[in-house]
Amino acid sequence: MSTALRLVQKVSATRAFAKLAPHVVPAVDRAVHRLTRGKVLPSARMLPGVVLTVRGARTGLPRSTPLACVPEETGTWLLIGSNFGRPTHPAWSANLLAHPDAEMSRKGGTVPVRATLLTGTAREAAWQSAVRFWPPYAAYQARVDREIRIFRAARREAGDEVSGA
């Protein structure tokens, strides 16, 4: 592991980062992603990243959020609702609970996905994988009383929608 990556992991696990990052990282990611037509996501220099677009739980309007993700060997992605170790669940996770069909923009392309909230042993296995992939997730969980939500996003056909969604 590179020294730079170790440093980023150490900084990412701090409370100061948890206070500042949610205001800075997504804003920079959104702006650069838009300017490069989806080809560049600055935070993805350290972690694989996507821009998740999902309908809002209350409004039904599309909401786009830059997220780190953990790619799995099966071609699926883990989306970790850490919210940088803040006490509340991120809004995008509530949106996915209400509307599991979403799109992920990655490296200039868009992939339609269906997200499933993981529970029980599937969640535990995914959590262990996520912490191996990005150790600061463990620090985030230690700081909060809530169980961090983990979703598995799997590719779906563009016209394949959940009934009633």
Rank of each mutant, 00 (worst) to 15 (best):
H99V: 02
T119A: 13
W127C: 01
V25E: 10
T76W: 04
F133E: 12
V28Y: 01
S43M: 14
C69G: 02
F84W: 15
V162H: 12
L79D: 10
H89D: 15
L117F: 05
Q128R: 15
A138Q: 14
R6F: 00
A130N: 10
A138T: 03
A91E: 12
S64R: 13
T59C: 01
V111Y: 02
A68R: 08
L118A: 03
R30Q: 11
R34Y: 02
E124L: 09
K39R: 15
L118C: 03
L118P: 02
L47S: 11
L20S: 10
V40M: 09
V131S: 09
A31L: 14
S163E: 15
N83R: 13
R114K: 07
P100V: 11
A154R: 14
L5V: 12
V51F: 03
D160K: 04
P48N: 07
R146P: 09
R34T: 13
G75K: 03
Q128C: 05
P66H: 03
V54C: 04
A31Y: 08
D145A: 12
T88W: 07
T53M: 04
L78K: 09
D160I: 00
R114M: 02
R86C: 01
V70G: 07
A27K: 13
R149H: 08
A130T: 08
S2Y: 05
S12D: 13
R132Q: 14
V111G: 00
P66I: 03
P90S: 11
P66G: 05
A130G: 11
L78W: 06
L47Y: 05
L52S: 02
R37H: 14
F84M: 06
H99P: 05
P112M: 03
P100N: 12
